[in-house]
Design a protein around this nucleic acid. Structure first.
Lengths: 226, 226, 226, 226
DNA sequence: GATGAATGAGGATTCATTCAT
DNA sequence: TATGAATGAATCCTCATTCAT
């Protein structure tokens, strides 16, 4: 997506055996990586709205022109960054948001999910910035929306495996929205505290979610012996 | 031309006496009102960060200079707006966040509080924008902070009257933070839906809060007969 | 001069026995005094160019409108201020720049003049600000020019009494320009130092002027016994 | 359109080698030159304080943004301009302010120095504007200060070679301040006159300085045969 | 690909001045 | 007179984006 193909590939470029094109793509990929890391850093420190493409380019150590060779605009950077983060979340934290094994208690499910998500978010603070998006209410926030709906979809899947079969889809969706909201607002508190207080807030997120979902999960064990 | 006399002077104003110097202030006060309304509108549509003082002035139908006769900068507008909003909240919605009568069940307390807050927020959408504050993480968000801590304080008071006496203050504070977070994230969902769906989300906020607080309130009736 | 007569005096105003008009003028004079003092203060702290009429009004404790009731613009304030300062210089420091008695030695004449001027300038720091005027080279600086030519004229008179009769007028003018320049640049040094160093600079001004003028004064005693 | 190629690229520039990255800088350097010339012109006509960056950009035929690509603010422009001017003064007018050969008479030394400085200042009128600095008394006048102290240092060196060995350093410094003051105020007169009158003022500066310094230089020949 | 110069509209803010009251 | 609200052009400066090299 970031690769604007407005400059047609030279014919023969794709021929096997020629490293030229591959090396180029490799260089491009490195640049993209650089830029995304820089963007992450800038988004974290200045917020998305206030982040300037020039600042991102500077942080990445490249010229503004170079940035625009890979991304058509600021939005696109956020979109790509969000996409890669989601990919990471899937790969690295594997089942963080995967459907829950039927035998698992709600408490365990919530605890594991929250722990994994929190770990991920602590390691990738941009995620939070992107999740909250710009402060514009009805925003034109492609990046944020993509991330949000992706997360939402995964949470819906997770809930579908948790709630009794036959639960109304609208209800699942609503519950997913609420759960994600709880997590996001909790995360804000977690990230703004440290040490024991942070741990306490993590526990609070778990409490809120468990208690919220408990009446909904039916006959599943509400709580494993702990 | 800039003097829109939409709010007609009270007759008899020119009567001799000490009102003389007030008249100017009356016009000024009207302008401030106009400007705050314009700011509210702009904050709602473009978000706080992206809102420009010029846009606010334009929306208010005055020149940039006029705006700066009353407010030294954007922050100050937000601060004043927040202040007035809090004042309204206290006055109009009376006990919206007042301590809870001991006889009230948790459910009733939560329901009433959420209903009142939601009504207020629906009527004053800016409140939401200000509550969420700007994008920027470490921002110099005087306005948002003031609003936030004000709300927080009131919620702490409310919780103090709800939780069993002797509850750890740190715990109260944490609970207040979490509760406010829940409300804020819930409000976002409420404001982005309409009709039955909106009502359903309001109910969800109530559910989440009640279930979250239930184990904390001790011997108070968890639930009134309903 | 500051009294814009665009509003014709009421007939009969000047009739004797009526305090009304006199009191008004008295009040006006007080206002003007206030404003000029405020202007002096602001000119000293921010410089003429950067001084704003609003700041002057604020410093004077009146509204901008009031200021413009007495002065048509910033220039006029400076002009009036300069005029009054020159008047003070004439009155208070009497013969500071008066022609020199034929019997006086050059040294005495220079010393006395520099001492008096310096005392005056130390007491009225605005004078310096006005003398230097805005940094615009070919400036439209009515105020500064008025002050400057006034001073110049007096210095020319002084020199005429000092130089041998029949000295070329052009030469006198040139010498006056140079002498005033020397004094101004010396004053800058004087005002930017204190205590002994300041005194040393005052002495330097005297030295420079005495030595510069010595060859020009002809048979007058170059130096009195001291 | 903004790219005025008034200074043609040297042919052969595109030859393979290490000049590649320089080309951009060449264009930039040209722009900087343009901007500094424009700034010089604007400083001369409107004075430093009243000069606006937009006016400078306009005069240079570029957009405001371009100016800010090379200079962070007005001060920086003045600083750079002053720096280049001092550099020119050193290079082009060689020993204008270099220590004086012991055999030279005071008159010759003063005459030569004033002649060179005056020639330089006539050719670079901005120098005067920068030397006088802004209006504002306690200003943040980095540019002016740099220039001033640079000049002062050179004059001190010059005087050290002129005054008898063992002269008090404080005295040298004071004498340098005074001499520079004399020159500056004289220059103002020189620049505001033309032809014979200008020449006459130049002579006056020489007279003032010679007579001022004469008693200080000890046994050095006060005056060469002329 | 990469650079960095260039743009120009738009941001916040100020200021001399005018005007209704 | 006095007030203070109002103006609007002008200030400095930023930023997303484009373009020649």
């Amino acid at each position: 997506m970031p690769d604007k193909p407005d400059m047609p590939e030279q014919p023969g470029d794709t021929a096997p055996g020629k490293e030229q094109p591959r090396r180029r793509q490799a260089r491009g990929e490195r640049r993209i990586q650089q830029l995304l890391e820089a963007a992450a850093s800038v988004f974290c420190t200045t917020g998305y709205t206030a982040a300037s493409t020039n600042a991102i380019a500077r942080e990445a150590g490249v010229s503004p022109g170079t940035l625009y060779q890979f991304f058509p605009n600021k939005e696109a950077i956020a979109v790509e960054l969000g996409g890669r983060l989601m990919h990471d979340l899937r790969n690295t934290y594997g089942e963080a948001l995967a459907p829950i094994d039927p035998g698992t208690s709600l408490t365990d499910a919530v605890n594991a999910t929250v722990d994994r998500l929190t770990a991920f978010n602590t390691e990738h603070p941009v995620f939070f910035a992107l999740m909250h998006g710009p402060d514009v209410p009805g925003g034109i926030t492609e990046a944020h929306d993509a991330l949000h709906s992706n997360l939402l979809g995964r949470i819906e899947g997770l809930l579908a495996s948790l709630l009794p079969p036959g639960t109304d889809q609208a209800h699942i969706t609503r519950t997913a929205h609420v759960s994600l909201g709880i997590y996001k607002s909790g995360l804000e508190l977690v990230l703004s505290h440290e040490g024991a207080e942070r741990e306490a807030y993590i526990q609070e997120i778990k409490n809120v979610l468990t208690r919220y979902l408990e009446p909904l999960v039916g006959d599943r064990l509400g709580r494993t012996a702990d």
